[in-house]
Computed example of a mutant assay.
Amino acid sequence: MQFENILIQNKGRIRYIIINRESKLNALNQFTLAELHDAFAAAFEDESVGGIIITGAGKKAFAAGADIAEFEKIDIDGGRQMARNAQHNVFNFIVNSTKPVIAAINGFALGGGLELAMACHLRTAAFNAKLGLLEVTLGLIPGYGGTQRLTQLVGRGKALELIMTADMITAGQALEIGLVNSIAEPDELMPETEALLERILTRAPLAIAAAIKCVNATGDSGQNGFETEIEAFAACFGTEDFGEGVAAFIQKRKPQFKGK
């Protein structure tokens, strides 16, 4: 599959999805969002792919927000449709993936770019990265899930502060408040992100998928998270991977999971 604004790279079981609009600081226009949907759909369907790392081309930006030039002629109905399409096709699509997705934040992650990173299951960041939701400076609010996911990650008070001030924060500050999982020197960001994902990929894939589903249920008012966990826990007992995990533990060897 060929893309105009996306680069795809494979490294073992890791699929890299790279936003390739370096001259625009990897801003997320509608065409790029559509390509992101297709790129993630292909990765989720490919059995050779165990997990995904998404990052931005170059050293300046992960994704510096939406492409503001597209907003100029959008009315209320258009804004509603834009947000709904992006949520369904990209952001929620990532959140509900059964494969782990890590955002490697290699520079600016602003507005829609930070919302994209927050939709991923984990976030790593370079020491020089800057993060923020700047929408109120345009007379807008985050529209791709930012108000909800930031609150889940850092709490109501801090989320309101960051959204209402539109302040950018450093990677170190993001680590302190729980917005990112780890930080690294710029040259070490990708190796350390790969190492994190490789550790995850040694675990049972069906159990990883079940864990993602259960954690997501905590933010879904339509689900009882405890019941979701109970059912997912029970289902694990019917998998071949459970048998392999127990056998490997007893035999004091590393398990060989097959995702079955």
Rank of each mutant, 00 (worst) to 15 (best):
I76C: 03
N85V: 06
T193V: 08
G143A: 06
G146W: 09
T137G: 00
F44K: 06
I54G: 02
A211N: 10
A166T: 06
L138G: 07
N224L: 10
V136H: 10
G146C: 02
L33K: 08
A207D: 04
A43P: 01
G65W: 06
T228N: 02
G51Q: 13
R253Y: 07
L116A: 11
A42L: 09
N181V: 07
L28W: 06
G50A: 03
E229I: 11
L179G: 00
R84L: 15
E227H: 11
A104G: 00
G178C: 02
R199L: 10
N128G: 03
K60Q: 15
D77V: 04
D220N: 11
G78E: 04
N106E: 07
V215A: 07
A57G: 13
L116Q: 08
T151H: 01
A103G: 04
Q81R: 15
E229C: 14
Q173C: 05
A247H: 14
G145L: 09
E115K: 00
F31V: 14
G132Y: 06
A159D: 11
A64H: 08
T55E: 04
T170H: 00
R149S: 01
A103F: 07
T170P: 12
K213M: 01
I17P: 00
R156V: 14
E244G: 01
E192I: 14
I102D: 00
F249G: 12
A61P: 04
V90Y: 11
I74Y: 04
F257R: 06
A247T: 06
G113W: 03
T202N: 06
A247C: 03
F31I: 12
D167R: 15
T202P: 01
R156F: 11
T32S: 13
E4P: 04
L110M: 15
G245L: 01
I17V: 13
Q173L: 09
I53L: 01
A129H: 03
F93G: 02
I18T: 13
R15D: 05
K59S: 15
A159K: 08
M168T: 14
